[in-house]
Amino acid sequence: MANAALSAPTLSAPAVILTTPQLAENIGAVARIMANFGLSDLRLVNPRDGWPQERAWALASGAEWPLNAARVHDTVAEAVADLQLVFATTARPRELTLPVLTPRAAAAELAGAAAEGRRVGLLFGGERAGLETADIALCQAVVTIPIDPRFRSLNLAQAVAINAYEWRTTVADAAPPAFREGPEPASGEALLGLYQHLERELETAGFFHPPEKTPNMVQNLRSALGKARFTDQEVRTLRGVITALSRGRGKVLEKIARKRGEGEA
């Protein structure tokens, strides 16, 4: 008979998203760790040597199901489009003002969201450069492992292992999933649509000035909005607000143009 204490409640486990992974061996090692801790949703963003890669299966040591079902995406935005809560794992929060969590605190928050029926994920950077600020801006919090500052280098598979372990220990002791009340949280795809809609109108209004600061301004806006964790309904409402404001601006410009035309007549 299986030990009941080792049986985790049925929750939707986090997707593991690897951004620009370089080595097939590291992808295989990550798959092995995912299998150890009950994770199966592996997503790869622009793997350097393409996909599939035979060496990944060799390093997985029989943990083939995350590799067999792995999905490849062109961008992080595409990889997180269906997720409603995504945390970026990085030692450098950089200039974004996102909440910074330990893996244990992150696991508790992810488990709580999963218990409410939300789709959650953990985003990991590539071996060489980690995560880009623009990708972190698509997440709702940063997970930082409290390692010794004298040596901050951490292998990709090690980082996944620490976070996967904290997830497993959290859900192993968790109560059965709670009934989720309230409106549905917005997906990554819906949030990206909101961001891009707002950015287009701000561009038209001349907000992004000087032009060279546009990428940082966009990232800061996305980071600030992401922390709100909007629902689908809130995203639709905000997009309606943006549309109404842009139409109002258009009417004002039409009136100005008409008056100028009358003055010149």
Rank of each mutant, 00 (worst) to 15 (best):
L67K: 14
R260F: 06
A106V: 02
G188Q: 03
N163D: 14
E199V: 12
G261W: 11
E132C: 08
A134M: 10
N163S: 11
R180P: 09
W167P: 06
I147V: 15
Q219L: 01
L194T: 00
G117P: 04
A5L: 13
R119N: 12
A205N: 01
A8L: 02
G248T: 07
G240A: 12
P99I: 07
L138W: 04
A91H: 09
P99K: 02
E181K: 13
H73E: 13
V30E: 03
A29P: 05
F124K: 05
L192Q: 15
F87S: 01
Q233P: 01
G62C: 10
L225S: 10
A190L: 09
D135E: 15
Q140T: 09
D148I: 02
D82E: 13
Y195M: 08
P185L: 05
R260D: 03
G112M: 06
P99S: 03
P185H: 05
S12K: 14
P103A: 01
L67Y: 12
M1A: 07
P103M: 04
L18M: 14
L122C: 07
I136Q: 15
A244T: 12
A15L: 02
G121T: 09
A70Y: 04
R119E: 11
F230C: 10
L191E: 01
V120Q: 11
Q84N: 08
P103Y: 08
A108Q: 14
F37I: 04
A113N: 09
L198M: 15
A24K: 13
H73G: 05
L59D: 00
L6R: 13
S223C: 14
V45Y: 00
N155A: 13
E166N: 02
R168V: 04
P93A: 03
P93D: 10
L191C: 05
Q196H: 13
G121A: 14
I162K: 01
T10L: 12
L59A: 15
R119M: 05
V86K: 00
A186E: 04
R168H: 06
T89C: 15
N220Q: 15
L85G: 00
L18I: 11
G250N: 13
A113V: 08
Q84M: 08
T90Y: 06
A56N: 11
A77T: 12
P103D: 02
A108V: 09
L85V: 00
R32V: 07
R48V: 11
Q158A: 15
S246D: 13
T170D: 00
E264V: 00
R229W: 02
V45G: 08
I136R: 13
E199K: 08
R150N: 12
G38I: 06
I27W: 03
I33W: 01
K255S: 13
A105S: 05
G248C: 07
A35G: 03
P185I: 04
L96A: 04
V252T: 06
V120K: 12
P211N: 10
F208I: 01
R119L: 11
V218W: 03
F37L: 09
R239I: 06
A2T: 11
L23P: 01
L156M: 05
R71D: 07
G125V: 07
V142H: 03
A88G: 05
C139F: 01
E95Q: 11
T90F: 08
R32N: 06
